[in-house]
Design a binder for these strands. Structure first.
Lengths: 254, 254
DNA sequence: GAGTGGTCTAGACCACTCA
DNA sequence: GAGTGGTCTAGACCACTCC
């Protein structure tokens, strides 16, 4: 059940959940609806609190949320402002390839090259923090964007005991992460990535339809569950036209 | 002046600043000192509040801060735990190359190839949100790690009126960002990056001491000030041995 | 000085986990 | 049921910006 089933604050349409999330969603809707232009100020926190009949702290939590996503930014003593479009569109999620493609307005596709049991090597065992020879599942896929091959993904998964991945269901859902969440109760929560450039190996080149030795973007990823247990190690290769976008926020110096 | 000049909470050694930052720093010190192992629980929020003589909300703010940095994680109903080492070391800052090198235990170096006035092209004007033919500064550098070339950085900077970059000072500081902050009052705050793989052009290859056509990691970056004004556009090229590390947190699905 | 966001408090209650 | 983190409140005061 949700936090408050009925809404004592009539102004917040979006269904259940914490008040500050509802408020953040409402505000974001207003911004996307074009009620405000870039760098325009929002109403003051105290005013928002009054007009939505919530405490100022709840307003601040909602604004914090939007700020983390790059939707707004606050300046001490001046106000809170709408972030420029360019920033708003680059909030960095732990997105599946499928969702990312949709956000970019493309049509995602995939071709499953391999789906089979595997045993952990020493290296994999170390990355996934399991014993060597633990049972894993290997999943190798070719990813397509608008029908054109753009990437190769080679995953090693550590599933809950007894769980399996059914090829047909994966093909139906299109997204591995959706399948993990919805069918296996595994919730990816954050991941660590390391990127560099490599030369295409012959087999990679053939699948991606590029010349052997041509440059590819290589990305290694360890995905962690909400309890910080590694659940996936994935090696990826992307063609040069595929752009990996990220937003680095906060500043570490004083 | 700081928030509270004298410390009514004797337990928080670190100098001034908000209480919750002092508390976060204190806790982080304890974690790094090895008082806790990975996935070990911290004291409950109410207990921390009592022992540090602060409100529970202040404790929560400190923990939020550490959680964003990947130092700890909280599970509803279970407790707050120390994050695994691998996550702790990958908190993603807007680091200068110089600071990043130090964090990785290497010795950074640079060779200034070009430092000259430039005028904005249409493309640059659009990226930096200025008029075409606005006055910019172009800075092209070869970056070294332990004496070996690892990257090329080609920056176009939009400086405050009248400000200039002095070659000797940049060489002395080693870090462009430090110079911007400390000498010019410009505070980089967040940046948007786009990465892909490219083949090395002859001139790039010569500088980086690799073969022409070999794979390089290409990164384009727009840096924004605290008021979300673009202050820098930078194109970078890195050799394959240079690894770009990032941490993607939060999950966008329900 | 008026208005803004930033910090801090004390207390209440809800939701979740685990024994 | 005891203990944990998650949400919400109402009010106070501080720090900054701009007029």
């Amino acid at each position: 059940m949700e936090h408050k089933s009925s809404d004592k604050h009539g102004l917040l349409l979006p269904g259940g959940g914490p008040l500050y999330r509802q408020l953040a969603a409402t505000l974001q809707h207003q911004l996307e609806g074009g009620h405000y232009g870039a760098n325009e100020p929002l109403p003051a926190e105290r005013d928002l609190a009054a007009s939505f009949r919530v405490s100022r702290d709840t307003v601040r939590k909602a604004i914090r949320l939007l700020e983390e996503q790059g939707v707004v930014y606050s300046d001490h003593g001046r106000g809170t402002f709408v972030a420029p479009e360019s920033v708003r569109q680059m909030s960095r999620f732990l997105d599946s390839f499928t969702d990312d493609a949709h956000r970019r307005g493309g049509v995602p596709g995939q071709q499953i090259l391999l789906l089979e049991p595997a045993v952990a090597t020493m290296a994999l065992a170390s990355l996934l923090q399991t014993e060597p020879d633990a049972a894993l599942v290997r999943l190798r896929r070719l990813r397509l964007l608008n029908g054109v091959p753009v990437g190769l993904q080679d995953s090693y998964l550590r599933l809950p005991p007894g769980a399996t991945i059914v090829r047909r269901e994966l093909e139906a859902k299109g997204s591995l992460y959706r399948l993990l969440i919805e069918d296996l109760g595994v919730r990816p929560c954050e991941c660590l990535e390391s990127l560099c450039a490599v030369a295409a190996q012959p087999d990679e080149a053939a699948l991606l339809k590029v010349a052997a030795g041509s440059p590819l973007l290589a990305c290694e990823r360890v995905t962690l569950s909400d309890r910080r247990q590694p659940i996936e190690y994935c090696e990826m290769r992307y063609v040069p036209s595929y752009r990996y976008k990220t937003r680095v926020n906060k500043w570490s110096l004083g």
